[in-house]
Each structure stands twice: as C-alpha cells, then as structure tokens.
C-alpha cells in the first residue's frame, strides 16, 4: 500500500508537468489544427535558460535567497520561450497556414530538430546538474514521501491551470480563442484578429512550457539539450488521450498519463508475473492510449465527430 501511495504521488507530480505541456499542444491544435512538434523543445529551452540565469546570477549576488533566483530564472525563461514561440510562429508556421496539411507538420519537425541542435551548440552535449535552490525537505503523506519541490510543482501547476481556465472562459481573449477554435474563418469574418489570437495561443503555451521545463529540471536535478523531445511526445500523447483541442482534456490526459506511468513502473512486473519489467511503462502508456482511442476515437473529453453525409 505504501508503494501504491508513493507511486500515486509521483504520478500526480509527473502528470502535472505533462498537463502543463499538453496544454500548449492543445491550444495551438485547437485553433490551427497543427501538431506543433517543436513544443517539447520549448520545455528544454526553458529549463536551460533558467539554469543559465541562475548560474550567472548566483556568483554576482551571493546573498540572494534561492527562491528569488528560481523565480528570476523562471521569469527570464518564460520571456525567452515566449519570444521564441512568436518568432517560430511568424517565420515558420504563418506562411503555411493555407498549405497542404502535412507541410506545417514537416516544418514543425524541422523547427524541433533545429532548436534541439541549436541548444546543443549553446549548452553542449553534457547533462547539467541543477543546483537545489529550494529546501530539499521531505514530508510524509499517508506513508509516502513528498518533497517541497514536488508540492510546489503540483500547487503551481494547479494554479496555472485554474488561471488558464479563467482566461479561456472569462475574458475577451478567451472568448476570441474559443471562437477561433470553433471556426477560424467565421471568427475572422466576425472581426476577430486571428493572427493576434494565434500568437496569444503560442505565447501562453510557451510560458507554460518554460515553467514546466523549470519544474522538470528541479524535480530530477538535471537538464540537457535532449530532454524536451520525449517529454513533448508524452505530453502530446496526453493531449490526445484527453481529446486534443480540449483544455480540460489536456489536464485530465496529463494527470492520467503521469499516474499510469508511475503505477506501471511500480506494478507492471508483479502484474505480468515478472515477464514485463518496469521498462515497459511506456508500452503501457501507449497501450492505454490505443485502447481509449479505439473506444472513443476523439479522446476522453473530445467531441464526437460523427460521419456527416
């Protein structure tokens, strides 16, 4: 039972991160129908920029408390990622908005490869250890250990998601975004500045990705140029699991995927009589994804798209 609670806690932490990244995929997909393959790389850029900021500032201002450093690093990372997202949207995606369906996908793959290798040029190939800026204190919770960093991750993720829901449902910007997601041409005819909305979606996604990047590197104490790819892939899976284009679905999918992976890592071996080890946790995640999509082809919370004659 202890293991179960522990894995559940780990799963919720992981899932919160997935959910933040998944939101970036889902916002852009909802409006443009584009799988922004490069989104995962923004997580990596966020983590590495924040790390560089912390490394530069800590010798200059030795008296600064760790949480201020972390905050500064996150803020700069969010800014850099937002600018990067604006640049990518403007240069790579916007000219292709009316191109054949797969052209933007290939472009996104190109952006992903370019960002990853640009990061390799800047930060090198090595793994960077992330200094512990926050107290490493650990709390006992129903028999499971949870660090303060992990509590912070979950709390911050919850806060950001609540903020995003408020934004989408309570503000003019949110209404315009929903209008674009419904039908971008009609929204444009109604006087919505579609380009501004698309940029907004990219920026929001980028900021969430930067925060997620800081979270991941703080949680594992590591950052490197390749960390965004698999994470992005998992987050995209989460977005699809929940029903891509649906904000609530991205959150649900992220949490579910995180919990499933953690429990899978803990129990797969016992469940399969030792045949499948914990290496198979990714198989489990994809297998559940396939099962869900086969029974609900538009994801858990996605709208049903029936065949229309």
């Amino acid at each position: 039972m202890d293991i179960f609670i522990q894995q559940l806690v780990n799963g919720v932490v992981l899932g919160s991160i997935y959910a933040l990244v998944a939101l970036g995929y889902t916002l852009v997909y909802g409006i443009l129908g584009l799988i922004n393959f490069a989104h995962g790389e923004l997580v990596m850029v966020g983590a590495l920029v924040a790390l560089s900021v912390v490394r530069t500032l800590s010798p200059l201002l030795p008296g600064l408390p760790g949480w201020v450093l972390a905050l500064l690093g996150t803020a700069v990372a969010a800014g850099v990622c937002a600018l990067l997202a604006i640049l990518i949207e403007r240069v790579a995606y916007r000219p292709l908005r009316h191109a054949p369906r797969l052209a933007p996908l290939i472009t996104a793959i190109g952006v992903s490869i370019a960002l990853q290798n640009l990061a390799m040029v800047i930060w090198g190939r090595q793994y960077h250890s992330v200094p512990p800026l926050l107290p490493a204190a650990s709390h006992q919770f129903a028999g499971a250990a949870i660090t303060e960093v992990q509590i912070l991750i979950v709390a911050l993720a919850a806060l950001l998601m609540a903020g995003l829901i408020g934004l989408v449902h309570r503000t003019r910007l949110g209404r315009a975004m929903r209008a674009c997601a419904e039908n971008i041409q009609v929204a444009e005819l109604m006087g919505v500045n579609v380009n501004a909305i698309v940029v907004a979606a990219f920026v929001i996604g980028a900021v969430l990705a930067a925060v997620a990047g800081v979270m991941v590197s703080a949680n594992y104490g590591l950052a490197h140029y390749h960390m965004g790819f698999l994470l992005g892939l998992k987050a995209f899976t989460a977005a699809v699991l929940g029903g891509i284009g649906n904000v609530g679905g991205a959150m649900l999918g992220g949490l579910l995927l995180g919990i499933m992976e953690s429990l899978g890592a803990g129990y797969l071996e016992d469940l399969s009589g030792g045949f499948l080890g914990s290496h198979y946790q990714d198989v489990l995640a994809f297998f559940v994804l396939i099962l869900v999509l086969v029974s609900r082809p538009s994801g858990l919370l996605g709208e049903r798209v029936g065949q229309r004659a």
């Binding site: 190109g110 640009l118 040029v121």
Partner: peptide, 15 residues
C-alpha cells in the same frame, strides 16, 4: 560541434 551544426542545418533546410 560538427554533429550539432549538421543537424541544425538539416532542420533549417526542412523549414
């Protein structure tokens, strides 16, 4: 780094 430069150019070429 030659490998990084190579893949960077590759990515940019795709775009």
């Amino acid at each position: 780094d030659a490998e990084a430069a190579r893949m960077l150019l590759f990515g940019l070429a795709l775009i």
